[in-house]
Design a protein around this nucleic acid. Structure first.
Length: 279
DNA sequence: AATACATACAACCGCATGTTG
DNA sequence: CCAACATGCGGTTGTATGTAT
């Protein structure tokens, strides 16, 4: 049995919002808030809209301090670099760009930045929560055929990152700061590919971390190690702890990462911290 | 001027996750 | 612990607008 719909599709109005509807919604929320339930909100206001639709309209359009259009070069850089590092996690990106919504960033990416960064390449990296979930399901079922690893971006970063018109800094998600320590993750694979995302935080044993949206990730998925550099280096699984300067040359995107310092300085301090919970 | 096509963006949909009883 | 429900998220679609022919 499927889940029941959140509203009566037959009586709910769809499509563009009228100025009158906007005014009603804005006025009510500014005075009363959402009263803890988006589902009940439209009835209280007298709107024939789905609660989800009201929520979306408020968050993406009516909410105060929302910026529309006119993305700056700095915002372009942040979006591009975040996409390279974390994939299509628009809400995370939105949290790094005050006044921007996930929907706005997503639209901007899909219509402009994607072409700018990737050209016409059809495939994109599977970094979304959903892609990760699919991968975990496949792995759990034992039928992981490795297809998800075939996706570009981090698998072939010289082509996508270095060869693109994008030359901005790569911003590692703020949750990885500070980066003083990196350690091996004990998965005995003999190289650094198993380095856990969590290791950037210096957590012991490379325990997997989970971010607030439930997405766990490994460092090699985020950054992509340059195997050639790795093989030439002295870094092995026995190198239990390294600092960022030792590790960064092993990454495909090293020259870009080195530009990260400037970006860190440009970000407000409050955007550079994020609480992650151990699984 | 009319039409076709391209682009931008608002909004919808379905799924995953969190919360509550 | 589990089911039902609410919310959040990302993918996708629909439509208004702009541009080319």
């Amino acid at each position: 049995m499927g889940r029941s719909p959140c509203c009566d599709k037959a009586t709910v109005k769809k499509g563009q919002w009228s100025p009158d509807e906007d005014a009603k919604l804005k006025s009510y929320i500014e005075q009363h808030g959402t009263c803890g339930s988006w589902i009940a909100l439209p009835q209280k206001i007298g709107l024939k809209r789905c609660g989800k639709s009201c929520r979306l309209r408020w968050l993406n359009y009516l909410r105060p301090n929302i910026k529309h259009g006119g993305f700056s070069q700095e915002e372009d850089d942040i979006i591009c670099s975040l996409y390279v590092s974390i994939g299509s996690r628009w809400s995370v990106m939105a949290s790094q760009l005050p006044g921007r919504t996930d929907n706005d960033i997503k639209n901007y990416w899909n219509t402009r930045l994607k072409k700018k960064l990737f050209g016409e390449r059809p495939k994109e990296p599977p970094h979304s929560r959903r892609a990760s979930a699919c991968r975990q399901k496949q792995e759990a079922k034992g039928d992981d055929n490795g297809d998800w690893r075939e996706q570009p971006a981090l698998v072939y970063p010289p082509d996508h990152v270095m060869g693109s018109s994008y030359g901005g800094p790569l911003v590692v998600p703020s949750s990885t700061l500070p980066r003083q320590q990196i350690c091996d993750d004990d998965d005995d694979d003999g190289d650094l590919n198993g380095l856990a995302w969590s290791s950037l935080l210096g957590t012991p044993g490379g325990q997997a971390l989970q971010d607030p949206s439930g997405f766990s990730i490994e460092l090699d998925e985020v950054l992509g190690f340059n195997q050639a550099n790795l093989e030439e280096s002295n870094v092995t699984a026995e190198s239990e702890k390294m600092n960022w300067n030792e590790v960064s040359p092993l990454l495909y995107s090293d020259p870009v990462i080195k530009g990260c310092e400037g970006m860190q300085q440009s970000l407000p301090q409050e955007q550079m911290t994020c609480n992650y919970d151990l699984i």
